[in-house]
């Protein structure tokens, strides 16, 4: 885990009592939902985000596209990047993938790209099968079967996501699944990435 990291404050600035009540209601509601309909209830980005102060330059890392082309973060200079390291056998990854898929369509006009890099040893075939079964249509297939990217990012497991701003610096990282397409998550992501030039 990087040094100097701390949790961001919630974007909302309500009285603590009210926030606690809301949190309680939210938790009760979501647990009811989880039990009753077993709906997918993932935490907001603000709950899992660990910000970096100051933002750090990313380590050297690379991954391959479905056609075998090697890409690095430098290829996305000037854009905001949500770099998500995941695997098909990982339950939380599977849970957040539809949200990432949806996020990609929402933030594309802002110049923010979502890059899910799979560390599956099964490679392209495993990911293609997963995308088809889970109706993932708006995300690129990116592969790193020997997991160098996880090593470079010092990820403790998957999913691990880093948010890279338009200057190419890592603003924060997330371990675990997040409801990426929730309005509050999107707003926070836009703030982290910075205004488009």
């Amino acid at each position: 885990m990087p040094h100097g990291a701390d949790r961001t404050a919630s974007p909302n600035r309500e009285a603590p009592g009210r926030r606690a009540a809301l949190a309680f209601l939210g938790a009760a509601f979501s647990s009811v939902l989880a039990r009753r309909a077993e709906a997918k209830v993932l935490p907001l980005l603000s709950r899992r985000l660990v910000r970096l102060h100051p933002p750090e330059a990313p380590p050297a890392l690379h991954f391959k596209t479905a056609t075998g082309e090697t890409q690095t973060l430098a290829d996305f200079r000037g854009k905001g990047v949500v770099l998500n390291v995941w695997a098909t056998w990982c339950v939380p990854c599977k849970a957040e993938m539809p949200a990432l898929n949806h996020l990609a369509t929402i933030v594309a006009p802002d110049g923010i790209v979502v890059l899910p890099v799979s560390i599956d040893t099964g490679g392209l075939k495993a990911v293609q099968k997963f995308y088809a079964a889970n109706h993932i249509a708006h995300l690129p297939i990116l592969l790193d079967p020997d997991g160098g990217i996880a090593r470079a990012l010092k990820a403790p497991g998957v999913p691990t996501t880093v948010i890279v701003d338009r200057k190419g610096l890592i603003e924060g990282r997330v371990e675990g699944a997040v409801q990426w397409d929730a309005p509050a998550s999107i707003a926070l992501l836009r703030r982290l990435v910075g205004p488009a030039e």
Partner: peptide, 10 residues
């Protein structure tokens, strides 16, 4: 094998 909590580790 793999083990998971909020993240998964192979």
């Amino acid at each position: 094998y793999s083990a998971c909590k909020t993240i998964c580790v192979p």
